[in-house]
Amino acid sequence: MTQVTMTVNGKAVSGEAEGRTLLSQFLRDGLGLTGTHVGCDTSQCGACSVHVNGKLVKSCTMFAIEADGAEVLTVEGEADEDGTLSTIQQAFQDHHGLQCGFCTPGMVMATKSLLAANPKPTEAEIRVYLSGNICRCTGYHNIVKAIMAASGQDVSAIAAE
């Protein structure tokens, strides 16, 4: 076992991890941050996406010891400091950008990364960016609408589905 220390959602944390412990396991089992979902363990679905040192990563493909000393942001850290939903989370709720909710944490974290790089993405740009995240329920339409709304764009002309 190796001692791993990192900053998660703004708080210094540490715990023990085996060399083979995935970051997703460390977050969920070691720290109790179960918002990071694991859907495939093969980097296909994106449900486990988190930010490590500001970069979007799929936590099922990174070992916890690789994140030693890193700044990690999970979906739990996306909420505002007072516990209210962030702009992105609120847009997903307002525009029904979720159904079963399993992919939602990864979608929210991907959205945060996208909007940091491209504050006003087009629908096509959003769809390309989300290609690493799988949603089996929504057909992506309302997710795209939510992301456009979170970016401050007018979505009134986009029909509800």
Rank of each mutant, 00 (worst) to 15 (best):
D68M: 02
M109A: 00
A117Y: 04
F63H: 13
V50Y: 09
D82R: 01
T74H: 13
A64M: 11
S113N: 09
A79M: 10
T61H: 01
Q99R: 14
S86G: 08
V72Y: 08
Q93N: 07
S86K: 05
A67D: 09
E66R: 14
A110W: 02
P105R: 03
Q99W: 11
E78V: 09
H95W: 03
C60P: 01
E71L: 00
G106F: 10
I88Q: 05
L114E: 03
N53M: 15
H96D: 14
M109P: 02
L56T: 12
G69I: 09
V72C: 02
C48E: 01
V50S: 11
E78T: 08
G83Q: 04
C100M: 06
V52I: 15
E78Y: 07
C103E: 05
T74L: 13
E66L: 05
A67K: 04
S59V: 05
F102R: 05
L114P: 00
L115Q: 02
N53C: 14
M107K: 04
F92Q: 03
V52G: 13
L73Q: 11
A110N: 12
L98T: 10
H51C: 02
A64Q: 12
I88C: 08
V72A: 07
K58T: 02
A67P: 07
A117P: 02
V50A: 07
F63R: 12
C100Q: 09
G101T: 13
H51N: 05
N118Y: 01
G106S: 11
C60N: 04
E66N: 15
V50L: 08
K112F: 02
S86D: 05
E123T: 13
Q93R: 08
H96V: 00
C48R: 00
F102M: 09
A117H: 05
C100D: 00
T111Q: 03
Q99I: 11
N53L: 14
M107L: 08
G54W: 12
D80G: 05
G101F: 07
G83R: 01
I88W: 09
F92E: 03
K120Y: 01
S59Q: 08
V72F: 06
V57A: 05
G101N: 11
H95Q: 15
N118H: 06
V52T: 13
A70C: 11
T111S: 05
L56N: 15
A70F: 04
H96A: 13
V50N: 03
T84E: 15
A64V: 11
S113C: 04
E76N: 13
A91W: 03
A64D: 12
E123A: 14
L115T: 06
S113D: 15
Q93H: 07
I65M: 13
Q89T: 02
V50R: 08
Q99V: 14
M107Y: 03
D68P: 04
V50W: 09
G69C: 12
H96R: 08
G106N: 10
A110V: 01
G77I: 08
I65D: 07
V57D: 02
K112Y: 00
G101P: 07
A117F: 01
K55V: 10
E71R: 02
D68E: 03
G77S: 10
S49W: 03
N53V: 10
V57Q: 04
Q93P: 00
H51M: 06
Q90N: 15
T84H: 14
A110M: 11
